[in-house]
Amino acid sequence: MLHIINKSPQERNSLDSCLRVTQSGAVLLIEDAVYAATRGNAAEAKLREAMGSLKVYALGPDLDARGMSDRLIDGVTAVDYAGFVDLVAEHPNCQSWL
């Protein structure tokens, strides 16, 4: 399953909740959730741990818009909107954690 998160981990618990129940698949961070995938963020350790069992992606245009592209954590893959579409198509199902 592809899990789509759109909120900063400091604002909402959606990333926490998702990682709490999810054991496999992929997480795509979009909109304000991209901050979670940047070096020095308090969520970094949690995300690195999750990367042991999950693939983590972040939407490049959202990183660029926020001036955070150069801080992307190693191991997180940046994708564009076309990549977003591919991720949805490649996974059997998806869920937006709103």
């Binding site: 399953m1 129940v21 999810t22 054991q23 199902n93 998806c94 869920q95 937006s96």
Partner: peptide, 18 residues
């Protein structure tokens, strides 16, 4: 449990969250 919840979600066709 959270683990069982995660497994159940995997089995779905359409998941709507709000």
């Amino acid at each position: 449990s959270r683990a069982d919840m995660g497994k159940l979600m995997e089995e779905m066709d359409v998941v709507l969250s709000c």
